[in-house]
């Protein structure tokens, strides 16, 4: 038998979600919204600064209470160019995405780069561009994109 002959029902698994920012995330996003700066948490035990910040060190499990400002200058570590969106639909304009690491921070950020594909390369220096104050809501999308320095 093929599809048309099967007796079948339609249904969905409907649910809406509300995610809390968490203890570390709450401060991270407030700093972006209010002060336009990236903050990480520092583990003195392991001499590691986490970006995005975490409440705890994943290696020694100390609770992290020391916050450090991360200078807004990063380097592109990995790149992709997306031609389809999250539903698999063709994008009108390809989207360049980069994983960017920041000096002195463990981790990094993945976001869109505001440049044509051919102008983005591994190792290039970029900085974070924020939405204008007033439009920022304290979410990851308060970061508009990376731009070349």
């Amino acid at each position: 038998m093929v599809g048309e002959e099967y007796r079948r029902w339609e249904g969905d698994m409907e649910a809406l979600y509300v995610y809390t920012a968490g203890v570390a995330g709450d401060r991270f996003f407030r700093e972006i919204r209010d002060n336009e700066r990236l903050m990480g948490t520092y583990c003195p035990e392991c001499d590691v600064t986490y970006l995005p910040p975490r409440l705890y060190c994943e290696t020694c499990f100390s609770e992290l209470n020391e916050w450090e400002e991360i200078p807004n200058k990063g380097r592109v570590d990995a790149i992709t160019v997306a031609y389809v969106d999250d539903k698999g639909e063709r994008l009108a304009r390809p989207k360049v995405l980069a994983m960017v690491r920041f000096l002195g921070a463990n981790g990094g950020l993945i976001h869109v780069v505001d440049l044509p594909e051919e102008d983005v390369y591994r190792g290039m220096e970029v900085e974070v561009v924020y939405l204008p104050r007033g439009l920022r809501k304290g979410s990851f999308l308060d970061i508009l994109h990376f731009k070349a320095i």
Partner: peptide, 25 residues
């Protein structure tokens, strides 16, 4: 509803359990 993320809640519970056991991660 707690502010803590799931990960952060896990951390807090583990920290207490390890402390009581006198062990580290």
């Amino acid at each position: 509803r707690l502010l803590e993320t799931g990960k952060e809640m896990c951390f807090q519970a583990v920290q207490m359990a390890l402390e009581e056991a006198g062990l580290e991660l």
